[in-house]
Design a binder for these strands. Structure first.
Lengths: 197, 197
DNA sequence: GAAAAAAAATGAACTAGTTTAAGACTTTTA
DNA sequence: TAAAAGTCTTAAACTAGTTCATTTTTTTTC
């Protein structure tokens, strides 16, 4: 069958871990919702109960919380071929603490909680897909959870730049500072210093 | 059938997410290795390829890396009813960067990589078990990965104490400092301050 | 149960990162 | 295309956390 580009990208992502029959592919795609957001629009805001888990087919978004002083802490940037959302709120159906905002015009495929549950019943292979997907994410978050406490801000910046060069060039220095966990002023100093070297 | 206490604890842990028949339980248990370590003994050391994923039935262990200066960074404390290991090395079969050392006499059940793979073939329900287990771990590591960059050391200490009161009383202040990401001296100051309040 | 080893406390001098403020540069919007 | 809004840079004063050195307390070991 002839799929649209966004669906092709998703099916390619899924086929890394499991093989689907033609019928299963069609069933899977039928469970998804297409979503478009303009730059600066929110995909979701703190206080809401997350309706979807998202696969990004185009664009860039930032996932962040606001602390008591109202300062943002970005927990991830999501671009094409990445999954994002608030897994905690999605699973517990409790209000989220996260905001997700597009930093560019973005297009996504969302799966609702009902369809996510249905997916496992209809195509049990997806248990395996998500087992492997979560396993890989877990490995990278376990590593990352040590960064904040064991690396200096400069080391965290160099690490991010090395791992995600495509992202660095698409986001502002201010947002990068909110991800690294420092002030924009200190981010500016680090970049000046690193460029000088 | 009559299982020993350690196996009962594990079966209870697994039954949170999936139901096993009597036969499946026996099959599962047959795939496990019993391991005992004395206080200060290593379960594994950096440079080795991780052989097992571990379920702790008794005791307490610390999982840590050493940085270039030889300073330890503890990424988790594992006690009874917890899972531990180095998932990254276990999956990729590359040498680990982690040390796992018992802080008390400990008893564990280990599953080897071959048996882990076999488990999914023999009892596919385990894809679901691990999907949910990794999902829950992922949720808590996503949250934790922000702690280091968005909370002060004192806030991280209070957070840990609130979430794991049973662990705080079993470990040294020095190890707690290596987990929180500060020097033992500053940990001492924080504890003095918090107790004074 | 005494000696040795490790952990905890305290304090003074230091450093990585913050705060505040102001000016220059860039992007967005009407 | 001008004005407004947001981003980036620089610098001085500040604070959270480190380093190093010493003493006290607790735990381990024989």
């Amino acid at each position: 069958m002839n799929y649209k580009e966004s669906h092709k990208l998703l099916l390619r992502n899924v086929s890394r871990f499991i093989n689907l029959t033609e019928l299963e592919k069609q069933k899977y795609i039928s469970l998804l919702t297409e979503i478009k957001v303009e730059k600066k629009d929110f995909l979701m805001q703190a206080g809401e109960i997350t309706k979807y888990e998202y696969f990004i087919t185009k664009g860039c978004l930032k996932v962040y919380t606001l602390d008591e002083e109202g300062a943002p802490h970005i927990s991830m940037f999501a671009i094409e071929d990445y999954w994002t959302g608030d897994l905690s709120s999605f699973m517990t159906k409790e209000p989220s603490r996260y905001y997700i905002k597009a930093t560019e015009h973005s297009e996504l495929l969302g799966i609702s909680r009902e369809n996510y549950d249905l997916l496992f019943r209809e195509i049990p292979k997806f248990e395996r897909f998500y087992r492997i997907l979560y396993q890989k994410s877990l490995i990278s978050y376990i590593r990352r959870s040590n960064y904040g406490i064991s690396l200096t801000a400069e080391e965290r910046y160099l690490e991010f730049k090395k791992k995600y060069p495509q992202i660095v060039s698409r986001i502002t220095q201010k947002d990068l500072a909110a991800y690294i966990g420092i002030t924009p002023e200190f981010m500016s100093k680090i970049i000046t210093k690193v460029n000088r070297m």
